[in-house]
Design a protein around this nucleic acid. Sequence first.
DNA 1: TGAAAAAAGTTGCAATTGCAACATTATATT
DNA 2: AATATAATGTTGCAATTGCAACTTTTTTCA
Lengths: 222, 222
Amino acid sequence: MTNPFYNIDFKEREKLLKSLESHLFHFPKNNSIFSVFEQENNIGILLKGYIQIIRLDSNGNRIIMEEIGDNELFGSFMLSFKNAEYEIIAKEDTDIVVLEYEQILRNQDFNKKYYSQFLQNMLTISFQKLKEKNERIEILTKKTIRNKLLEYFNIVSSKYGSKYIYLPFNFTDLADYLAIDRSAMSRELKNLKDEGFIEIKGKRITLLYDKYSSIYKMMQPY
Amino acid sequence: MTNPFYNIDFKEREKLLKSLESHLFHFPKNNSIFSVFEQENNIGILLKGYIQIIRLDSNGNRIIMEEIGDNELFGSFMLSFKNAEYEIIAKEDTDIVVLEYEQILRNQDFNKKYYSQFLQNMLTISFQKLKEKNERIEILTKKTIRNKLLEYFNIVSSKYGSKYIYLPFNFTDLADYLAIDRSAMSRELKNLKDEGFIEIKGKRITLLYDKYSSIYKMMQPY
DNA sequence: TGAAAAAAGTTGCAATTGCAACATTATATT
DNA sequence: AATATAATGTTGCAATTGCAACTTTTTTCA
C-alpha cells in the first residue's frame, strides 16, 4: 500500500501532522482500540501493525468487516459504528495516527506543497481501498459457498500471480470474512479437495484447476 | 454528492481538464458505455445522468455492482472489468468526463490551487463512496433474505430519516442488488407484509417496526 | 390505443446451508 | 511439559433459498 507520507520529508511531515491536529497512539497486541473511534468522523492511518474490525450481530453472527495492514486507512469516516456492535482489535503491536475528517477536507493550505502531496497520497490509498471493497462485494454476491471460495481464491491467486495461496487468516476467520458458516465451509473445502480442485496443507492452498478451463465454467451453483 | 469541481471556477476547470487529458462523452438513454472503460485504469466522473454497472456470471447470475448518480466516480481504477463480463448501461441520458488515473495521481502541479482543490474534492467523493461500499457489505454479509432486506431498509430509512422508503429501483433490480433470487425475495416480502412489519405500495415501503424494538432484535435467521 | 415486452406474484421441489453437538488436533500459557 | 484454550473436522437434520415453470399485472412503444 502506498505510504501516506510518500514524497513528504520528516520536517514537513511533522508540520503537516501538527496542522491537522493529529494524535498518535500505540496499542499492544490483542488490545481493543475501539475507544478512539467512538467520536464522529475521524480517520485512522495505520503506521505499523495489523488490526481487524469485527461486527457482531444481534443474531450472534461475527463478521470480519475489515483487515487493516500497514499504511491503510480506516475509521468512522468510512464505516459507521453507530448501528451495531463493533470490535476493533490490534492483532499485533500497532501504531496509528488519528486525524479529523474536517481538518483534511476543509483545510485550504493549498500553498503548502506537502499538503497537496498528502491529498494525492490519500487519494491513491482510497482508490486502492475501493478496489478491495469491490473485490469483497464480488465474492459476497456469489450465491454458493463453493463459488464464494473460488472467487476468493482467484482474487488472492491473481494478486500474487501464483496458484499457491497462503491464507492471511485461519479458517474460522475466513468463514467470518466470507460471511458463511464455518462448518459448511469446512464441508465444501472437503468436497473441493475430494473432487481434485484444490490441495490444502494448513494455511497453504494449491489451486489445481485452470481459471479458464471448462471445469471452472461448469462449476454451477446447483 | 460533492461536486468534483466545487470551488473551481469555469476557466480553471477548463485548464484542469485540459491538463489532465480528459475526454467528454455523451451517451443516450439505454446505451452501453462499456467501450470507454475497456482500457486500463481510467476514472469516470458522471456529470449528469444515471448509469448501472452490471456483472454477469458464467452461471447466468446478474448482479448490480454499482449504481452511479450525479458527481459520482466510477471506472476500472476501482472495479476491474477483466475477469468477468460486465455491462455498463446509461439508464438516462448521461454526460461523463473520463480522466487517466496516472494523470491525476502522478501530476505534481501543486502550485496550481485548482489542482489541489480538485484532489480534495475527489478525496471527499471517494470517502463517501467507501462508506456506501461498506453499507453494501453490511447488507451482503447478512445470512438470510429477511435480514438482508431489513438491513437495506434500515440504511435507506436512516439516510432519509423516515420510515417511508421510496425504492430507487424495481424489485427485479433490488434482488440483483442484494444478490438474492427474485422469487425468493418476493416470498419473503410477502411474509414481512403478512407478519405486519412492512407495507408495500408499488415502490413505496412503510416500515411498521421500531428499529430498537424487541421485535426487531428477535428477528432471528431461523 | 393496443399489442408486445417487462416486471411482479406464486408455488412445488430439491439443493444448499446453517445450526447443534460432538471428536480430534493444534496452539497458547503457566 | 502439562494443561487449558482455541481451531478444525465431521455429521444429521431442518430451515432456507434457488430454480423452474407458470399466471397476472404493469409498462413501453409502435
